[in-house]
Amino acid sequence: MIAVYYQIVRNEFQTLLRARWLIGYGLIFLLLTDTLFRFTGGGAEVLVSLSNVILLFIPLISMLYGILFIYQSRDYLELLLTQPVNRETLYWGLFTGISGPLTSAFLAGTTLPLIWHGNFSGEPAMQTVLVLGIGAILTFIFTGLGFVMGLAYYEEKIKGFGYSLMIWLFMAVIYDGLILLLIFLLGDYPIETGVVGLTMLNPIDLGRILILLEFDISALMGYTGAVFSQFLGSLKGMLTASFMLVLWLILPMWLGLRLFRKKDF
């Protein structure tokens, strides 16, 4: 079983590494990171700017990539399914075989400039790992969501793409807008816990909050608000957000696996 899994992952890697755009994806991050170093003078500034890009684009690109993979390789999928291969093994092989190279391209692209600008030594090392870790986790989550959308709308590509874009738009922009609206509409009520809870449900917000906690704690602590500052100011906040992010990591993978097991191809 593991041998089969390995073969599938390896094949995906080989195929993808030959795909030029994936190299382009890595190169974009390389150029971006290096440019950030040159224009901002390094340090936390680079990581914060990089994290902005990560939070905006990685979910979109990963999800489109996940769904595109399902649509593009339907025949390949069916070919593999006719082989003496377990569906679960196949699923995990495909999933890691897809999200792995995407994550690798992202990590390679960002890590190289971070290394040669010395961000992996001393104090910024932990922050660097945090930012890259969030990028990697978001890649997995949203590739998984792309898989889910591709499998759920296997025969209806336009719908699949449309809904995926809407999901991204919702999670990246609209959700936060709604929460802001909620805060301003119900500001007089004790909604702190509720609002903190709501942000914990959105993986992009989770990534963003982890970055806030690391880089902007001084701003956050400048305001009163018991639940808010208690939660954000403590290790508990960091741990809860990380835990929720891991839950999010599992959710799309599990949904995808369920769909994949039951699906008629």
């Binding site: 795909a19 025949d75 069916e78 070919l79 006719t82």
Partner: peptide, 23 residues
């Protein structure tokens, strides 16, 4: 019943053959 080993005995040639493009 969701098993897969039996497929060792089967060769399948689909209607439309499309494979990973870069392979």
């Amino acid at each position: 019943n969701g098993n897969h080993i039996y497929r060792r005995d089967i060769g399948y040639m689909p209607q439309q053959a499309r494979y990973p493009e870069n392979m």
